[in-house]
Amino acid sequence: MKALIYPIITALLFCYGCSANEPISEPDPIEEEIYFPPFNTDTWETKSISELGWNENQLQSLLNFLGDNNTKSFMILHEGKIVVEDYMNGHDASKLWYWASAGKTLTTTLSGVAQEEELIDINNKVSDYLGTGWTSAPLEKENLITCKNLLSMNSGLDDSSDAVEPEDLEYEADAGTRWAYHNVYKKMQDVIASASGSNFANYFNSKLRDKIGMTNTSGGWLQLSDFNVYWSDTRSMARFGLMIYANGKWGNTQIVSESFLNEATNTSQDINKSYGYLWWLNGKTSYHLPASQLEFSGELIPNAPNDMYAALGKNDQKIYIAPSKKLVVIRMGEAADGETFALSSFDNELWEKINNLID
C-alpha cells in the first residue's frame, strides 16, 4: 500500500508546491565561514571527518544505530557543509518525508517575517486578525489570547482535542497561566494568511521556501486529517536548519530577523522553561512534555550541548541546531521506539552516538 501512496503524495505536493514567483537570484558571497549551497542544483560542498579531527571509527556505529532505529535519512552539517549524509531503510535523497511537528518552526519563522513586514504584532490579541468567536471561550477570556500565546503554547485553551474549530477550542485557564502542547498553534497560520491577504502556503513559498532554495525538489503542505503537514526531501529540511543556524540569513539576505529568532529560541514563558516559540530548548533546569502537566527536573536532552535547540516532530523527526558545535543535524524516519509526540529517549541516545563521533 505504501508503494502506491508515496508516488501519489509526491505528485500532489509537486503541484501544490509550484508557484509563479519571479526567478530568484543566488545569494551573494559573504565574508564569513558559513557555507550556503547554491539553488537549483544537487551541489553541496562537503567536509571530511578527518579534516575536522573527529573520530572516524565511530561513524559506522552511529549509522548502525540509526538504521536499527527506523531512520530513513540523516545529515550532519558543519558550518553549512555536509559531513555526514546517509539514507537507509528504503529511503533515498529524492524521496519525500513528513516533518510532523518539526514543521511548527516553519510557522514560527513566517510569524517573524510577517512581524518584520509590520503585517502582525505577536503581542496583539489573535482576535485582532481573526475576529471574535474563533474559540468557544467567553469573549473576555478569548481576548486575553495573543499571537505570542499561540507560539508559546500557553493559550489556556483545552488541549484534549487536536481539532481547532471554534467549538473545539474551549476555555481551560487564562492565557499565560497554563502550558499545554496543542494544535491551536495552527491559528497562527490563519493570522498570517489574513494579515498578508494571501494563503499561508503562498506566503510561505514566496517569503521562505523560494528564498533559501527549497524549490529544487518537490515538496509542500498537505492536509492530513486535522493537520497541515509539510513534506520535503532531507536536503530541504537541512536548508531550513542552516538558515536558522545562520541567525536567519541566507547568504547576504536576511530571511527572518535575528532579534526575532533570538526570542524564538529562548524561554518564551515561565511555565515550560525548555520551550520557545514552537522550538524546544536544551540546557534549562526543567521541562514539560506534550500531553502532560507534569514538570520534570533537569535538561531536555542531557547528552546534547547546552545551547542546542530543536524542532521535534512526531515519530522522531528532528532538526537539531547546536551553535557551540557549529552543527545542524537532521533525522527523518519512522518512530525509533514506539509512537512518540516529539521527544523520546532516542534523542539522548542519538546524541551520545554523535558525541562519540565529534569529540
Rank of each mutant, 00 (worst) to 15 (best):
Met153Leu: 12
Leu150Arg: 03
Ile358Ala: 02
Ile9Thr: 03
Met153Val: 15
Asn199His: 01
Asn69Ala: 07
Val191Ser: 06
Glu167Phe: 15
Leu294Arg: 12
Ala310Ser: 13
Glu85Ser: 05
Val329Asn: 03
Leu300Trp: 07
Met243Pro: 00
Gln189Ala: 12
Leu327Thr: 02
Asp307Ala: 02
Pro166Glu: 00
Pro323Tyr: 05
Gly219Thr: 03
Ser286Trp: 04
Gly241Phe: 10
Ser101Leu: 02
Asp121Ser: 11
Asp128His: 11
Asn123Ser: 11
Asp233Lys: 05
Ser218Pro: 13
Ala193Cys: 08
Asn216Tyr: 11
Asp307Val: 05
Ala163Gln: 10
Tyr171His: 12
Ala201Glu: 15
Asn64Pro: 07
Leu119Gln: 09
Asp174Asn: 05
Asn315Tyr: 08
Thr105Ile: 13
Leu261Asp: 11
Ala201Met: 06
Met88Glu: 04
Pro166Cys: 01
Tyr320Asn: 12
Thr43Gln: 14
Asn21Glu: 13
Phe346Arg: 02
Lys2Leu: 15
Pro166His: 04
Tyr275Ser: 06
Ile212Tyr: 02
Leu278Arg: 00
Ala342Leu: 14
Leu157Gln: 02
Tyr230Ser: 04
Gln115Thr: 12
Ala93Val: 13
Gly298His: 02
Gly276Leu: 12
Glu334Asn: 07
Tyr129Asp: 10
Tyr181Leu: 09
Gln223Phe: 13
Ala311Ser: 14
Ser292Tyr: 01
Met1Trp: 15
Trp134Cys: 10
Asp121Ile: 09
Pro7Thr: 00
Thr108Ser: 04
Asp190Pro: 03
Thr105Leu: 04
Phe200Val: 04
Met332Phe: 13
Glu295Ile: 15
Trp351His: 15
Asn228Asp: 11
Ser297Cys: 08
Val83Met: 01
Ala20His: 08
Phe346Ala: 09
Tyr181Thr: 01
Gly241Tyr: 06
Tyr287Ser: 14
Asn89Gln: 08
Thr265Asn: 00
Thr215Arg: 09
Lys207Phe: 05
Pro138Gly: 07
Trp179Ile: 12
Phe65His: 00
Asn303Cys: 10
Gly176Arg: 01
Ala102His: 04
Lys186Val: 15
Asp359Arg: 01
Ile30Phe: 10
Met153Cys: 06
Asn183Leu: 12
Glu258Cys: 04
Gly251Gln: 06
Pro29Ser: 09
Lys47Leu: 15
Asn40Ser: 15
Ile8Arg: 04
Asp270Phe: 13
Leu151Asn: 05
Gly248Ala: 05
Ser286Asp: 14
Leu169Arg: 02
Asn199Phe: 06
Ala100His: 10
Ile120Met: 11
Ile8Gln: 04
Val84Ala: 08
Ala173Pro: 00
Pro138Gln: 01
Met75Gln: 14
Lys273Phe: 15
Leu224His: 13
Leu350Lys: 02
Ser206Trp: 09
Pro305Met: 08
Leu357Ala: 02
Ser218Val: 08
Gly338Asp: 12
Asn123Ile: 07
Asp128Leu: 09
Ile319Cys: 04
Gln60Lys: 09
Gln317Met: 10
Thr253Asp: 15
Phe240Thr: 02
Ser268Val: 07
Thr135Ala: 05
Asn40Glu: 13
Pro7Tyr: 01
Thr285Phe: 13
Leu4Thr: 09
Gln293Trp: 14
